[in-house]
Amino acid sequence: MPNPDRRRLLAAAGALLIAPLAAHAAPRPLRVVALEYNLVEMLLALGLTPVGVADLKGYRRWVGLGQQTLFGCVSVGTRQQPSLEAIAALRPDLILGVDFRHQPLLPLLSRLAPTRLQASDRTGNGLALMRQDFRQLAVWTGRSQAAESELARLDDCLSRLRGQLGPSAKQRMGVLQGLGGSPQFWAFAGNSLAGGVVDALGWQNAWPARDARQGIVTLTVEDLLDSTASLTAVTDPRADFTRGALWQRVPAVAEARLRRLPADTWLFGGPWSARRLAERLATAWAPAAHAICSGAVSP
């Protein structure tokens, strides 16, 4: 005949054995969908791979940082028009977007999962604004310690590069990016990431305003004809916007104070993009600065 006291004793002993295992079981990884490139990069820098990314192909092409960890990640449409069906199928715990693209979609996205939108049009130093965004994202995902470690690496890199640049940094510097098929191009103001990195390396930004819309000033080559600033342009060798006839009259071009960076130099990203931009800027203007930062960022 079964002994009820013995069965209770065995059950209690089993519970004691299972409890420690349950207490130490790893929590399920947070399932996050990121609808903008800088959010993807920031998540990867925090050690968190998103389950869904808007325009995954575009991220790999234009940003590339950490892309090897995105294998198996699902594309959820475009950044401007993400697929609600694709997002819902991923059963996310959190959806991340930016206000200038995704504010109209917020009620719909919020029905699928808690949704957070980062602000995109603010005033201040662009590098400091990126730090705020990164720390905010770390709070949303419970990864604040990882964020501080990554920002410390960025600070160390900037300090080393600034020291390496030395006197060459005592000049005005402008960062430009072409617009495909257009005579206009973007110049990066003080409230852009590029403007913040320029300041951090010791240069004076050619466009210091800290209240430009999304950190960008739209110019034409005519606007540079009387500029004394040195220039660094992010260019595509197949369509280099700085090689037109009128560009030869720009003082920085005529005096060999123009440097070019590869087309995959992303100017709207997080700490990895900031570090890669700083490394490329420093190397372009002081070749001895090459690979001075430990743990160089690479795709």
Rank of each mutant, 00 (worst) to 15 (best):
W62F: 07
V63G: 05
G64D: 00
G64R: 03
G66H: 05
G66E: 11
G66V: 02
Q67C: 00
Q67M: 00
Q67T: 00
Q68Y: 06
Q68L: 10
T69P: 05
T69Q: 14
L70K: 01
G72P: 00
C73S: 11
S75L: 06
S75Y: 08
S75A: 13
V76D: 05
V76L: 08
G77Y: 11
G77L: 09
G77Q: 11
G77R: 05
T78W: 15
T78A: 15
T78S: 15
Q81A: 07
Q81E: 11
Q81W: 02
P82Q: 00
P82F: 02
P82M: 01
S83W: 07
S83K: 09
S83R: 09
L84P: 07
L84Q: 13
A86H: 04
A88M: 10
A88W: 10
A88I: 05
A89Q: 04
A89N: 00
A89T: 01
A89P: 02
R91F: 11
P92E: 14
D93L: 14
L96Y: 07
G97F: 07
G97P: 07
G97C: 10
D99C: 09
R101E: 09
R101T: 04
R101M: 08
H102P: 08
H102C: 09
Q103R: 13
P104I: 01
P104F: 03
P104H: 04
L105T: 03
L105G: 03
L105D: 07
L105I: 06
L106Y: 07
L109S: 00
L109Y: 02
S110G: 08
S110P: 03
S110A: 11
R111N: 10
R111S: 12
L112Y: 01
L112C: 06
L112E: 02
P114E: 10
T115L: 12
R116N: 12
R116H: 14
R116E: 14
S120L: 08
D121R: 01
D121G: 05
R122H: 13
G124E: 14
G124T: 13
N125G: 12
G126Y: 03
L127C: 02
A128G: 06
A128L: 06
M130G: 00
M130C: 02
M130V: 03
Q132T: 03
Q132I: 03
D133Y: 01
D133F: 01
R135P: 01
Q136F: 08
L137W: 02
L137H: 06
A138C: 09
A138H: 02
A138L: 05
V139C: 02
W140V: 04
W140Q: 01
W140M: 03
W140Y: 04
W140P: 00
W140A: 06
T141F: 12
T141W: 10
T141A: 12
G142K: 08
R143T: 10
R143H: 13
S144G: 13
Q145G: 15
A146M: 12
A146N: 11
A146W: 09
A147W: 15
A147V: 14
S149N: 14
E150V: 14
L151C: 12
A152E: 15
L154V: 00
L154K: 02
L154R: 03
D156N: 11
D156F: 10
D156K: 01
L158Y: 10
L158D: 13
S159H: 05
S159N: 04
R160G: 10
R162P: 03
G163I: 08
Q164E: 15
L165T: 09
L165E: 10
G166S: 12
